[in-house]
Amino acid sequence: MNGTQIILGEHKGRRAAARMVDGQLDDLLIDAGDDRPGIGAIFRAICDRPIKGQGGMFLKLGAGLTGWHRNAKGLAPGQTMLVQVTGHAEPGKAVPVTDRVLFKSRYCIVTPRAPGLNVARSLTDDVERDRLLEIANDAVPERDGHGIILRTACEGIDEETLVDDLTQTWGLAMQVLGDEGSVADLLLDGPDAHTLAWREWDGDDISENWDTVEDQLDTLRDTAVAIGPATFFIEPTRALTAVDVNTPEGGAGGLKANLALARALPRQLRLRGIGGQIVLDLAPMSKKDRKAFESALRGAFRADSIETSLIGWTPLGHFELTRRRERRPTEELL
């Protein structure tokens, strides 16, 4: 099947969503079956203890959960604050959080304590930008020092749909921001797989035929990925994820295999829910070909939604990158 299709369903009784592009699984979201907080969850937190030398603060989140805030400046033990989960913590580690809380929907983002009414830079048509700004300003005229960003999905949207989304998101934000409690507690759950798919994925072709997805999930359990004559192996460990590229072809075949890896890597990491430190053990190629590989890798990750930093080459000739832990490892969820 050509084009993009969004498939909503369940995997082992948990909500799941998949994005198919030209019949191939391109992205996957599956709800976890435990009580660990998801990204986007908002807590009323209590500052616990600062960590000297790291500049951060451990926080009590309630229900026995501990959070980690990277910036302890201006914070004191016992202080109450609103925080939002920014990543998935490994078992036994504190949950990463930020005090820069955002309320996201498909069409807008409410930005507490960051005033302004703005439109996504990707919307370049001045007439459309003015139309959207006028609708938003009429829907939420009094913003009390908070801000709104109108997302790319707003383009061409009818006024009624946008107003409904704005007023609902704004109302939720004001409800949470108006909390006056003093005990560490969860105030707002992170979005489930269906909500996140609606919020972040474009596509009008919606299906509930989950069997189409199940047929492709087995490939994610295999560490080997074959592309033409080349095969690369994606092997997570506790410390890092190693990616090993193998090809029977010598000479220019090494560069060809490495370029194939560069194009395929963002999708594979996204589908497998892999983040953290990643080390690429590439097929042999000359040093003069490194720039071509780096350019291909940078271009491939530019279209990926998860923040990834290309670190560079090691003395042994490996290439390192780091990736935000925005998802649980798919292996755990399957």
Rank of each mutant, 00 (worst) to 15 (best):
D130T: 00
V176Y: 00
R15E: 12
F301E: 04
P315T: 13
D289F: 08
P329V: 10
K287G: 14
T308N: 06
A76D: 12
S295M: 10
W201I: 04
D281F: 02
N209M: 08
G254T: 02
G181A: 06
R302F: 09
D130C: 00
D144S: 07
R106Y: 06
I274A: 04
M81S: 08
L334T: 06
I206T: 06
P229Y: 12
G203Y: 02
A17Y: 07
T66F: 04
T237Q: 12
L259S: 04
L297A: 00
E159R: 10
A296Y: 01
G145R: 10
T219A: 13
T98A: 09
P329G: 06
T161R: 10
R272V: 11
D281N: 15
V243Q: 02
E200M: 03
W201V: 02
L8W: 13
R238F: 10
L240R: 01
D218E: 14
R290F: 10
G23Q: 00
A303S: 14
V101W: 07
H88Q: 13
R70P: 12
K291A: 15
I157V: 15
D48A: 14
M174V: 05
R325K: 11
R263A: 11
P77S: 12
G190Y: 02
P248C: 09
K291I: 12
D192W: 05
D35M: 12
L117Q: 00
G181L: 04
P50I: 14
